[in-house]
Design a protein around this nucleic acid. Structure first.
Length: 352
DNA sequence: AAATAATCCAACCGCGAGGCA
DNA sequence: CTGCCTCGCGGTTGGATTATT
């Protein structure tokens, strides 16, 4: 027994929107707003469309100040950084890029940015790229599904493809860290949100040192050479009292079907020690059949650094990162990563 | 020039969360 | 508390377009 459909599928039009439909929807919403009910909207307007379809069309195309294509280098950097930090939380990433929609960013990532980035480490990622593309067209699917099953299996040892991609990108960033102009080495590019946390970080380190309580320590999981607290890199840190937490790899899913990071009881907001994932990581990294010894070695180095901190490591879901409130789709005041690289309050100023 | 493959991207789908009666 | 309903999100699809052979 499935869920009840949101609309009468037989009587709704699907597929591309016509200019007339666009005009109707745009005119109505600009004049009356959505009325807080997308499902009822198409009937009011006289559109034979599903409410969800109307919502999507408005959010992705008709809404004012929407930008399409022409992603800048700065936007590329932000998307990459956030993807590595929080994974495929496209709505959160979109919230940092004014005028961009989650769908646009998702498509851009899947079709261009990912390839551009991973292409820099081609010898590591050929198979990952194939097996992980969530945006395969029909042709892509048919081509890769027939002959690459064993290749795919090499990467299905408990780590999701998304997580593997992010690990790869971490490797990339390690080399970027050597670059004095990189995002990670330039505090001026970091979110303003991070900066007020620095004091708390320092406090927590001091307190951890004075009390000997490792739970108060700030962890530095993936940097090969941990930076001083003030040079911390721009992940989504959140201060909970004196705890400073990170969600850097919360997209890694256990192979046994248990709950991934940050979703201990199915609800985001839980914090889980990373140590429960060490087994599968070891299994993956030690597997000699993977055919990717170089990658394994480098990844292992990363996680050796993590091991030292794992007992004091708390993973925090990115929802704590203003996920809901920052959604551009809510048309609320949001925090936006401006082109100068600093979080700023952002108001769409659109009357609804 | 035609056929085929690869890529792009708008739109759809299903699920989880949250509000409300 | 429960169930219904809507919203918002991320994953996926498939037609259109572009590139390659």
């Amino acid at each position: 027994m499935g869920r009840a459909p949101c609309c009468d599928k037989a009587n709704v039009k699907k597929g591309p929107w016509s200019p007339e439909e666009d005009a109707k929807l745009k005119a109505y919403i600009e004049r009356y707003g959505t009325g807080g009910n997308w499902i009822a909207l198409p009937q009011k307007i006289g559109l034979k469309r599903c409410g969800k379809s109307c919502r999507l069309r408005w959010l992705n195309y008709l809404r004012p100040n929407i930008k399409h294509g022409g992603f800048s280098e700065e936007e590329d950097r932000i998307i990459c950084s956030l993807y590595i930090s929080i994974g495929s939380r496209w709505s959160i990433i979109a919230a940092q890029l004014p005028g961009r929609t989650d769908n646009d960013i998702k498509n851009y990532w899947n079709t261009k940015l990912k390839k551009k980035l991973l292409g820099r480490h081609k010898h590591y990622n050929n198979n990952i790229h194939r097996s992980s593309s969530s945006n395969q067209g029909p042709n892509d699917h048919h081509q890769y599904s027939s002959g690459s099953a064993s290749d795919d299996n090499q990467f299905s040892m408990g780590l999701s493809n998304s997580a593997l991609e992010r690990l790869q990108l971490h490797l990339q960033l390690q080399s970027d860290l050597q670059n004095p102009f990189s995002f990670y080495n330039n505090p001026g590019l970091w979110p303003k949100k991070i900066q007020p946390l620095q004091d708390k970080m320092i406090q927590s380190m001091q307190q951890a040192a004075s009390t000997g309580n490792p739970n108060l320590l700030i962890m530095q999981p993936l940097l090969p050479n941990p930076q001083p607290a003030q040079q911390d890199y721009p992940r989504n840190f959140e201060a909970k009292g004196l705890e400073v937490v990170d969600n850097s790899l919360d997209g890694i899913s256990p192979s046994d079907g248990s709950v991934p990071f940050g979703t201990g009881n199915g609800k985001d907001g839980d914090a889980q020690p990373v140590s429960s994932y060490q087994g599968q990581l070891d299994e993956f990294l030690n597997d000699k059949t993977s055919g990717y010894p170089q990658m394994a070695d480098q990844v292992l180095d990363c996680f050796r650094d993590m091991n030292g901190a794992k007992d004091s490591l708390i993973w925090w879901p990115s929802d704590q990162f203003d996920a809901k409130s920052a959604s551009p789709n809510s048309w609320d005041s949001t925090s936006v990563f401006q082109s100068n690289g600093v979080f700023q309050d952002y108001e769409l100023c659109y009357p609804m």
